[in-house]
Design a protein around this nucleic acid. Structure first.
Length: 994
RNA sequence: GCGCGAUUAGCUCAGUGGUAGAGCAUUACCUUGACAUGGUAGGGGCCACAGGUUCGAACCCUGUAUCGCGCACCA
């Protein structure tokens, strides 16, 4: 390998390795390789919108998945990360329609017609779809691209229809005329989940109506929507309201439309809140859910009382609006053809003119907005398809940590007599049901609450792009039943085929993928909610309904990584679908990411223009840098405040890693190491190549720290604490390896005559220089080889480059690191045996720590006196210091020379610090500002005195010493002794200063 | 309104009862043979507030405030 450049150039390396991985089919999963020894690990990607582009949210989400997958590979698992995209009905159709309109081809989609438009959307999809897939590759995502799926693929569409038919036959899908959420912009029904409530600062308008039977009596009504007055069908008051109850049964005249001021019944309904407004409610059943229910209740009551009135009230609600939010003729001539918000102004003007307007007051309320189109939705009575959710119980029960249920409790087998009581002991032997875990677990409560309050799901959309409802109708024949209709009627009567049914207003219906042969069966025009296809994602992507090898090996999947914003849209529904059609949960763990925000804590949004383009970041800093930066700032369960600085930090980190490798490489090129292989660089060192007898305290220390890092990173990843893992890696590599170990190792690597004993009592046991150098290099290789592996899931590109560049792959088996670091074994912490082999004891850590502490103190001393040059230090050691330790101290202190003198008698005024190794002097005759030194020592003395006072205070407290545990007591006593000694020394120092 | 979460250095966050931490930012100094995308040293905190438990509270309990999220909703 040629000598490494001074800086790392990400772009070239990333492109090269990604292609190599693809060529090697490194991401391709093979169910045949799954065995007990090689367990499966699988993730299905949350399918991004096929027309979408990569956002930071995707970066976060997919980096996490990639980290999990790459680590699983290193653990020797057979990994499937299944990618794909979503057809995203409304969004995609909107994008294409808009583009076509811009291009001037059409004014409305009807100009093109259904078939043509769908064709155009497919064209668009082929051309622009999947940009995001290419972008994911830039990020380093190790998806099995050979299995890429799209929710509108033929096979997938089949699954969607099959599922619809199945639910239809089970009686869980029905068609009905109901109040739904209607988007006047997209012209379709929406599910409750697609409506977001927004707080609005609006006005509450008060107007009055006169009671017909009591002229002169006026009722004041408060409303936020005066434009809907023409749709009013009643005036409602609370039957317990003393102010109004005597008016129930009378009538009041509706002010609008002017040409049709109908007398509306004044009715009683418990729903009316007397606290709100005036306590009088206008009832607009066609445009308000609650009002619609009031009408239904009223109608039922009226009909029960008198069948004569049935006709009068059996008419439907008065719908005064067109689907696009423009008022229709029923709104009256003044409002007809006017857009709803414009109509409001006119209605107010009309009321004012006729003297009915009383006042308007500021009012804050919540208005439902269409999530996609970002316009206020309308409540609208329309015929739609609804689904009663299947497998609700199982889906609800399987999530551990639900409200009021501990994970262990939730795991009790059903049917156990103790199920609702106390849980058995852990040793009780009751095997727990498989449990799904949420990270962070608080989302389990949110999930449980939603699952406990399920509303039927409106699954039909008035769109053209999507899976068309597989229901077929036989047109009504007014001249009596045809032969075909008679045949179908018979089937329905006998319930011999559940695919047939009768739907009011539609006639005979048949639900299946294909229509029945014969007859003019027409397909339902609606398509299905996109989520009605994505809820099948974990198994429909793996070949369901066939019992494929993929399903057998990889279902249930292991982890799901997604945002909490789609917990109901997607996660909950997938769980239900998993139980309904696979009989099993679809994934074992769900990791909910945070939401990416900008520095000011605002959500990323197009309109704010505060969302950086990840691809630009990758170009500027590298994919590894972006990954590391974003993972470092993404703690479990918290939102992410995104700042380019994080990515820059990632880039800097990669540079550091690169240069540390470069340093190592430069050492071996000097050729001093006899153990160096013929290639010039040894392969990753194994334990066997490290000679424990030659280990310095620094070597032992870094091995010890490595061991700690392995433990920390491993457990952090097991608990999905990614930012903790990166923090550990950062600390270990930068602070411990580079700042201390590499610097200390220079004592061995760069020591000229270096290690010759400087101390008077020279121990003389310094080993021959070359073998010691070789040993230090072996330790470096061992640490670097492990470090690269620990980093690989986070920094796949640079670690692969260095793994090969450093030759660490050389002696590894082909499929375990020889070809790619991706399959190198995940580092394991040292066993007891290994620790014994290296001769690493806990006190070795202290030896090195004491040394580094001494260095810190010495540097501080230099800094206090503004010494920037290399100067002489003298140490008066507490006990003998081996030559190596002295040399390390010398180098780290940048001392020239470092004299060791056990009987050193410093001149008056010589600055000195008390270190764990003894007194360290900075003899600078004549250069010292005695006043400054006195000030410094006094400050330390005060500190020591304070601390001593605190500890003594505690130890003097009878309460304290009698109640505190022995361990804490000992600690305090030790602390007292330490501070007392420190204080005494400092006093002496101060006296010495004169 | 109900529920959940947060509140620790200028910023982003660790810290599960025993001497308050990290990174960034900032200040000073240093281009020394891996790295200036770097090194060394420093400054900076009544741990949101008020009570309580305890020998001892950032940490446990109660309440309050502010912010965020979810659910419900009064027109």
């Amino acid at each position: 390998m040629p000598e490494l450049d001074k800086t790392y150039t990400a772009a070239e390396v990333e492109a090269r390795w990604y292609q190599q991985w693809l060529d090697d089919k490194a991401f391709v999963a093979d169910p045949a390789r799954v065995s007990e020894k090689r367990p499966a690990y699988s993730i299905v990607i949350p399918p991004p919108n096929v027309t979408g582009i990569l956002t930071l949210g995707h970066v976060l989400n997919n980096t996490i998945q990639d980290i999990l997958c790459r680590r699983a590979r290193m653990l020797g698992k057979e990994v499937l990360w299944l990618p794909g995209t979503d057809h995203a009905g409304i969004a995609t159709q909107n994008v294409v329609e808009k583009t076509l309109k811009k291009q001037g081809g059409i004014k409305h989609r009807d100009d093109l017609g259904r078939e043509k438009l769908v064709e155009k959307i497919w064209e668009w999809k082929e051309k622009h779809g999947g940009i995001i897939i290419q972008q994911l590759k830039k990020l380093g995502a190790s998806c099995d691209w050979s299995r890429e799926r799209f929710t509108m693929d033929e096979d997938y569409s089949c699954c969607v229809q099959k599922v619809f038919v199945d639910l239809y036959k089970k009686g869980l899908i029905y068609r009905g005329k109901r109040m739904v959420n209607w988007c006047p912009s997209s012209l379709t029904a929406l599910s409750d989940e697609e409506v977001v409530m927004k707080t609005q600062k609006g006005l509450l308008y008060h107007f009055k109506v006169e009671v017909v039977e009591q002229p002169g009596t006026w009722l004041e009504i408060a409303t936020t929507r005066p434009e809907t007055i023409p749709g009013d069908m009643a005036i409602a008051v609370n039957p317990k309201d003393e102010r109004y109850k005597h008016l129930i049964g009378k009538h009041a005249r509706r002010p609008l439309p002017l040409e049709n001021q109908a007398a509306l019944p004044i009715i009683g309904d418990e729903h009316v809140d007397y606290e709100f407004g005036t306590g009088v409610l206008k009832v607009t059943p066609a445009h308000d859910k609650a009002d619609y229910e009031i009408l239904l209740r009223y109608r039922a009551a009226v009909m029960a009382a008198s069948s004569e009135l049935v006709d009068k009230y059996s008419q439907g609600p008065i719908d005064i609006m067109l689907p696009n939010g423009v008022m229709n003729n029923l709104a009256g001539k003044d409002l007809a053809g006017i857009e709803r918000f414009e109509a409001r102004k006119i209605a107010i003007a009309l009321l004012t003119e006729m003297g009915a307007m009383v006042k308007e007051e500021p009012h804050q309320n919540n208005v439902g907005y269409s999530e996609r189109a970002d316009v206020p939705i309308e409540h609208r009575l329309s015929e739609q398809w609804f689904l009663k959710y299947p497998s609700v119980e199982a889906a609800r029960e399987c999530v551990a940590g639900r409200a009021g249920v501990s994970p262990a409790e939730a795991g009790i087998m059903p049917g156990s007599s103790e199920a609702s009581g106390k849980m058995p002991d852990a040793a009780g032997g009751t095997p727990a049901l498989p449990q799904m875990r949420f990270f962070p677990d608080r989302w389990a409560k949110v999930y449980d609450h939603w699952m406990g309050n399920l509303q039927d799901w409106c699954i039909s959309r008035q769109l053209w792009w999507g899976h068309r409802v597989p229901v077929w109708y036989l047109p009504h024949n007014p001249d009596g039943l045809t032969e075909e209709q008679r045949r179908v009627a018979e089937i329905i009567k006998n319930k011999s085929d559940l695919r047939y049914s009768f739907i009011t207003g539609r006639g005979f219906a048949y639900c299946d993928i294909e229509p029945p042969t014969g007859g003019n069966w027409l397909q339902d025009p609606d398509v299905l909610d996109t989520w009605f296809s994505s809820w099948l994602w974990p198994f429909a992507t793996m070949g369901w309904p066939n019992k494929t090898a993929d399903l057998k090996a990889f279902y249930p999947t292991t982890d799901l990584v997604t945002g909490p914003d789609i917990i109901f849209f997607w996660v909950a529904r997938m769980i239900m679908a998993g139980y309904e059609w696979m009989g099993e949960m679809p994934f074992k763990n769900v990791y909910f990411t945070g939401i990416i925000r900008d520095k000011q804590g605002r959500k990323m949004s197009k309109s704010l223009g505060n969302s950086p383009d990840p691809l630009e970041l990758i170009e500027k800093f590298g994919a590894d840098a972006l990954r590391f930066g974003i993972m470092r700032s993404a703690p479990l369960g918290a939102d992410i405040a995104f700042d380019d600085k994080n990515v820059e930090l990632g880039r800097n980190f990669c540079t550091k890693l690169w240069n540390a490798a470069r340093f190592r490489q430069m050492q071996s090129s000097s050729g001093v190491s006899p153990e160096t292989s013929s290639t010039g660089i040894p392969p990753v060192a194994t334990e066997a190549e490290i000679n424990p007898a030659l280990l310095t305290s620094d070597d032992k220390w870094i091995l010890f720290r490595l061991n700690t890092a392995i433990n920390e990173v491993t457990s952090a990843l097991e608990e999905y604490r990614f930012s903790d893992a990166t923090a550990t890696l950062y600390r270990f590599f930068w602070s411990e390896y580079c700042d201390w170990y590499v610097e200390a190792s220079k004592a061995v690597l760069q020591g000229s005559a270096g290690v010759s004993p400087v101390n008077s009592d020279g121990t003389g046991e310094t080993p021959a220089l070359p073998s010691r150098k070789a040993n230090t290099l072996a330790v470096m290789d061992f640490v670097l080889g492990h470090t690269l592996r620990l980093f690989h899931p986070f920094l796949p590109f640079i670690t692969e480059e260095l793994w090969h560049g450093m030759g660490f792959n050389a002696d590894m088996p082909e499929n375990q690191g020889g070809k790619s670091i991706m399959f190198a074994p995940w580092p394991k912490p040292f066993s007891e045996d290994e620790l014994a082999h290296f001769g690493i004891l806990p006190e070795d850590e202290k030896t090195a720590n004491d040394k580094y502490e001494t260095v810190n103190l010495g540097r501080g001393l230099k800094s206090t006196f503004n010494i920037t040059k290399r100067v002489r230090f003298v140490i008066k050691p507490k006990q003998e210091l081996p030559a190596h330790e002295i040399e390390v101290l010398r180098i780290l202190l940048n001392a020239d020379p470092l004299d060791v003198d056990a009987s050193y008698a410093a001149k008056k005024g010589t600055p000195v610090v008390l270190t764990p190794l003894g007194e360290l002097f900075l003899p600078l005759e004549g250069l010292i500002d005695v006043e400054a030194e006195r000030a410094r020592v006094t400050k330390e003395l005060n500190k020591a005195s304070d601390e001593l006072g605190k500890v003594r205070g505690k130890l003097a407290d009878e309460n304290f010493i009698s109640k505190v545990p022995q361990k804490v007591l000992d600690e305090h006593k030790q602390r007292e002794a330490d501070w007392a000694a420190q204080l005494a020394k400092l006093k002496t120092m101060l006296e010495t200063l004169g």
